[in-house]
Simulated scan of single mutants.
Amino acid sequence: MNRRLAQGYQGDSRDPEHPETTAVVALGANLGDRAATIDEALRDLGRMPLTTEVRAAAPIESVAVTVDGPDADAPGYLNTVALVTTRLAPSVLLGYLHAIEARHGRERRERWGDRTLDLDLIAYGEVRSSDPGLLLPHPRAAERDFVLGPWLVVDPDAVLPGVGRVDALLENLSGGGS
């Protein structure tokens, strides 16, 4: 099921100084009312300035991934992926994602720990960045079925820039690749 949120700025996408770009944002939560948090975070994405559309896959359940690998004993995650049509620069968009996380009680205490909300900028158009503060595309996206699966739901032709087609990446993860 796709969701369409068309709140926010309705500017001229033909403005060459600030062209619209599709950003891929992964959302996850494993603490509190996960579904309500994901729904509200999607609404928050739609309220960002210079953002004209947010489309997201229905959330899926996944096992928590910790520094030591998958942990079936940890609280499970609810995950989805949203395509965000925006004219925000990638670094500005990342700042908004962090602010949305904070508004939902996200605390960064331990790497890959439990969280009320996690928003990851997976891709921003074709932009590639090796800046430690803004790695694009997300360096572990190709390894995460809970990112790739929902992404395919909202964009069956999705491509992870510099890596490959999302359907092929997901097939490789499931053991179907060569």
Rank of each mutant, 00 (worst) to 15 (best):
A72F: 03
V63K: 01
A102I: 08
G95D: 13
R108Q: 08
T66F: 01
R108K: 14
R106Q: 13
T85Q: 11
D71E: 04
G76A: 15
L83K: 06
E107D: 10
Y77A: 05
A74M: 03
I60H: 05
R87G: 07
E101F: 03
R109S: 15
R87N: 07
A58H: 14
R106W: 05
A58K: 15
R108G: 04
V92T: 14
Y96Q: 15
A64N: 02
R111M: 03
A102H: 15
N79T: 00
D118H: 11
R106E: 08
N79S: 09
T85I: 02
L117T: 03
H98V: 00
T116A: 03
D120Y: 10
T116W: 07
V63D: 01
T80P: 04
A102W: 11
V84Y: 12
L83P: 01
L93Q: 02
P70S: 02
I60K: 01
R87W: 07
D120W: 05
L97H: 10
D73K: 14
P90E: 07
R103T: 04
A102Y: 11
V84P: 01
P70G: 00
D120V: 00
S91E: 15
N79C: 02
A72K: 06
G95H: 08
A74Q: 12
R111E: 06
T116C: 05
T52N: 11
L78I: 06
Y77V: 05
A99P: 14
